[in-house]
């Protein structure tokens, strides 16, 4: 039961395409447990789906931490991949940017769906994306 917990409550590994669905399911469940409104939940889980797909398709896989933040209660996700990172993050965030044949609404779209969107290249390589939304 996550209703009273805070901090990281679950980690989902993102190695294969099927893991994207698992990540959506896990985040959706935490949203339900926290009593999120339908629209809030759908927006957040959709953003998670975009970020998780980016991790699997372009980041060579990685993992995703689901965390609960308090005062006020919010949900957060940190997605980390072990790929090469993105040389020009601003450019990648623009709508229509595409690398591997996707239509590129993914990351830019995800940013519009959440309250806080942070993206950075990790010093040790790979990309880190953090999403936070109120419920």
């Amino acid at each position: 039961m996550n209703a009273l917990r805070s901090g990281v409550v679950k980690t989902v590994s993102l190695d294969r395409e099927r893991d994207i669905a698992s990540a959506r399911y896990a985040v959706s469940k935490v949203c339900d447990e926290l009593g999120a409104r339908a629209l809030r939940k759908v927006r957040f889980v959709t953003a998670v789906s975009e970020v998780a797909r980016n991790c699997v398709d372009h980041g060579g896989g990685g993992w995703l931490d689901i965390e609960i933040l308090r005062k006020p209660t919010r949900i957060g996700v940190r997605c980390i991949d072990e790929g090469a990172g993105i040389p020009n993050i601003e450019e990648a965030m623009r709508d229509g940017f595409t690398t591997a044949g996707s239509m590129g609404k993914g990351l830019g779209g995800a940013r519009r769906l959440v309250d806080i969107f942070e993206i950075s290249n990790r010093p040790s390589g790979g990309l880190e994306v953090r999403l936070v939304s109120a419920l």
Binding site: A38, L39, K41, V42, R43, D95, K105, G109, L113
Partner: peptide
């Protein structure tokens, strides 16, 4: 399509 899905898709520009 559910209402929340429709709103989210519009936001994504789809």
């Amino acid at each position: 399509m559910r209402p929340a899905v429709a709103m989210t898709l519009v936001e994504l520009g789809m």
